[in-house]
Lab assay of single mutants.
Amino acid sequence: NKFNKEQQWATYEILNLPNLNEEQRKAFIDSLKDDPSQSANLLAEAKKLNDAQA
């Protein structure tokens, strides 16, 4: 299913963002699990935070 693929991709991407700390990473991944339909939005937020902390 589409959300499952998006969720897996977003999880992979978030795990590989270098500037997030473990707590932030875990929070994003927990949110992905809670609502896979928000995968794209959550990934965008994670990338923004990652860039802000660069």
Results as ranks from 00 to 15, higher is better:
residue 36 P to W: 07
residue 13 E to R: 04
residue 3 F to R: 00
residue 41 N to R: 11
residue 21 N to Q: 09
residue 1 N to L: 04
residue 22 E to G: 07
residue 15 L to E: 14
residue 18 P to A: 07
residue 21 N to K: 10
residue 22 E to T: 09
residue 10 A to P: 02
residue 20 L to S: 00
residue 23 E to A: 13
residue 6 E to H: 05
residue 42 L to V: 15
residue 49 L to F: 05
residue 48 K to W: 05
residue 12 Y to Q: 14
residue 38 Q to P: 01
residue 22 E to A: 06
residue 25 R to S: 04
residue 41 N to G: 10
residue 30 D to Q: 13
residue 17 L to Y: 05
residue 51 D to H: 11
residue 24 Q to T: 04
residue 27 A to H: 14
residue 6 E to Y: 08
residue 26 K to I: 08
residue 35 D to Y: 07
residue 50 N to A: 04
residue 48 K to F: 08
residue 9 W to R: 09
residue 36 P to A: 08
residue 54 A to T: 10
residue 43 L to V: 14
residue 31 S to T: 11
residue 50 N to L: 00
residue 16 N to G: 10
residue 7 Q to N: 04
residue 31 S to G: 14
residue 18 P to M: 09
residue 41 N to F: 15
residue 15 L to K: 07
residue 37 S to P: 04
residue 25 R to G: 02
residue 33 K to Q: 05
residue 20 L to T: 00
residue 48 K to H: 11
residue 14 I to N: 01
residue 12 Y to F: 15
residue 15 L to M: 13
residue 22 E to H: 09
residue 34 D to I: 04
residue 29 I to F: 05
residue 49 L to S: 03
residue 45 E to I: 12
residue 22 E to R: 06
residue 30 D to E: 12
residue 43 L to D: 00
residue 1 N to Q: 05
residue 27 A to W: 15
residue 27 A to M: 13
residue 29 I to A: 04
residue 50 N to T: 01
residue 3 F to L: 13
residue 38 Q to G: 07
residue 10 A to D: 04
residue 54 A to K: 04
residue 48 K to G: 06
residue 11 T to D: 03
residue 5 K to G: 07
residue 7 Q to V: 13
residue 2 K to A: 15
residue 9 W to H: 15
residue 5 K to D: 14
residue 43 L to K: 02
residue 15 L to Q: 14
residue 14 I to G: 01
residue 15 L to D: 06
residue 53 Q to A: 06
residue 39 S to A: 14
residue 20 L to V: 02
residue 54 A to L: 10
residue 47 K to W: 11
residue 2 K to D: 15
residue 23 E to H: 10
residue 54 A to E: 12
residue 11 T to Y: 15
residue 17 L to P: 00
residue 42 L to G: 01
residue 20 L to P: 00
residue 40 A to M: 15
residue 12 Y to G: 12
residue 5 K to L: 03
residue 36 P to D: 03
residue 22 E to S: 09
residue 3 F to I: 05
residue 5 K to W: 08
residue 29 I to L: 10
residue 15 L to G: 06
residue 20 L to R: 00
residue 32 L to D: 00
residue 27 A to R: 12
residue 8 Q to D: 07
residue 23 E to G: 10
residue 20 L to K: 00
